[in-house]
Amino acid sequence: MEISKKLWDGTIPLCIIFSHEGVDRELYLEIHRVSYFPLIYEKLVSYFSHYDTGLNIDKIWLEFDDGQSKVPIQWNIPSGLLYDLLHTTSGNNSIWTLRLVHNNYPSKHILPHANVTHLKTTYMNQIKQSSYVLYGNSKAIMSLSAGKSEELWNSVVKHNWTLYEAISTNDITKNKNILRVPVKLFISGSPVVIQAPIFPSAKNGVSHTTLKDVLYEHVPTLFHGGITAKVIVHGVDISFLLDSKDSPSILELWKLFKNVDNFLNLIIRAPADSVTDNYLANIATTRIVA
């Protein structure tokens, strides 16, 4: 249970830079790994409005400079996942510097209206999607009362594990008859996200599906032929589970590592030369890609 607590309490250090009239203003703050960037937008606007009163919460976004280009941050993706996907690629757990930008919203690259209201809608849609993957329907979410839905969202906003766990256990995942495990495989260094049906048990119905089974089925070339891709989740490398004798099932891993939207997000970090454009194009045509 110590692991669950560490996963929930994980935070990432941020430095948000806002440029106004040619001067860079910095704001240092932490955000929970299991959280979303729009939840700190109000604080950012409140602070930086001191320098620029024209800041509008509906028109701001965060941008990441990867040294080659400026990448708008996808606010609908959990913050910890973005940190691992974009910042710690070289094992760098330092402060992540992001730039707060307003006006000329990059609607072509990220979802519009990055505010808390739209985040709530996106979150509820995500959790409906994961519920559908789990049970073949979204009844668990659709049948939640308005009060419960609000409580669930508040538990995410306030980072209240007690409330979240109570609703999650008693209402959302109370049905133990899981058909498929909601897993997303993010290929580091590319925009590819693989979402394929992953069954909790093997075809024979006896043995449980393991992480190795999932990776060997969906990204086989990154784990064969001497390529040593890493599997990152919540900032830790869990590749050791591939060779572990007491390796847990993918369902157990999902229960432990799942995000608040009930998706298990795994980052596949392969050597740059093995993730070629051809390889990605091949994945894109053979898998369900988000």
Binding site: E2, I3, K6, L7, G10, T11, I12, P13, E30, N93, I95, H234, G235, V236, D237, I238, F240, L241, S244, D246, S247, P248
Partner: peptide, 20 residues
């Protein structure tokens, strides 16, 4: 594997929460 994971999370937090 739980012990190993717990140790890795400890290392992660030492780095990411160093200036908490």
């Amino acid at each position: 594997w739980e012990d190993r994971l717990d140790a890795q999370l400890e290392v992660r937090d030492q780095l990411e929460k160093a200036d908490s």
